[in-house]
């Protein structure tokens, strides 16, 4: 039993080290990769434009629900005027970075893991290496760099549409004065809240896209599975690990930032 726990612990530590090396190597090899900007633009399109409808939809509904729930909770204490502050702080500090990251993992992250897994299966990654092209620099680095920009931008859009959703349910449907709602938003959100929000988004972007890329890139290492099954397992694993990491990292980052 002790041996089993020891072996598993060693495997986890070695996996974490391997993951860190993979991410480091990807950033390092970016400098040697040619036509990088073109591939970053493509990655921005994949993570940004293609995921925008999902992010906006989820953002709108989150704002709507926050406005609704917030109104009835605040109504008990006669503090409906604080609805704008409640919705905005909830969105900026927690919900927008976390939910946006989870949405992007579900769409862009899973697609990335599956694409890299298939490229590994069909020897495209080996082919790149034999051509003298760094597969990390060509396939992974543009996605990681794009994530550092796309996740904060998508999060900001999530906040914007969420605030509008909160206003829709709180002001237009439940009767909170629109001016009170928006002035509450303005008073409650400080610059450090926005900084915290964007920093979290960038960290989540880096972590989740690295995890998805790592799992897809190493689909051939899947224990007990090969081919399509290995791609399926590595994609599932990428999404599950990324989702867990988003929530765990959220706690860690928040505990450092909130004083």
């Amino acid at each position: 039993m002790l041996r089993l726990v020891g072996a598993e612990s060693l495997r986890v530590v070695s996996g974490l080290g391997d993951f860190a090396l993979f991410t480091g190597q990807s950033f390092r090899s970016a400098s040697a990769s040619r036509k990088l900007l073109r591939r970053i633009a493509r990655a921005i399109y994949e993570q940004g434009t293609l995921c925008l409808p999902v992010v906006l939809t989820i953002g709108a509904f989150t704002g709507l629900v926050l406005g609704l729930q917030g109104y009835y909770v605040l109504d008990r204490f006669g503090s409906q005027g604080l609805l704008g502050a409640l919705v905005s702080l909830s969105l900026v500090r927690e919900m927008a970075p976390v939910l946006t990251a989870l949405m992007l993992v579900g769409q862009a992250g899973s697609a990335l893991a599956a694409e890299l897994g298939i490229q590994r299966n069909s020897e495209q990654i080996v082919a790149l290496e034999t051509m003298g092209v760094s597969s990390h620099g060509y396939l992974v680095a543009p996605r990681l760099i794009a994530a550092l920009f796309v996740f904060p931008v998508q999060t900001a859009l999530f906040v914007a549409i969420g605030l509008w959703g909160g206003s829709l349910s709180g002001s237009m449907l439940l009767g909170v004065d629109s001016g009170v709602y928006w002035s509450g938003v303005e008073r409650a959100v400080e610059a450090k809240d926005v900084r915290e929000c964007l920093l979290k988004a960038a960290i989540f972007g880096l972590l989740t896209i690295s995890i998805c890329a790592y799992n897809g890139f190493h689909a051939h290492r899947c224990r007990g599975a090969t081919g399509a099954r290995a791609v399926s397992i590595s994609t599932t694993r990428a999404v599950v690990y990324s989702s867990i990491i988003v929530l765990a990292a959220d706690y860690v980052v928040t505990s450092f930032l909130v004083r």
């Binding site: 490229q119 069909s122 495209q124 080996v126 082919a127 051509m131």
Partner: peptide
């Protein structure tokens, strides 16, 4: 250069 069994085309 290498030419792979499954061609390894992108």
């Amino acid at each position: 250069s290498f030419l792979f069994q499954g061609n390894a085309l992108f």
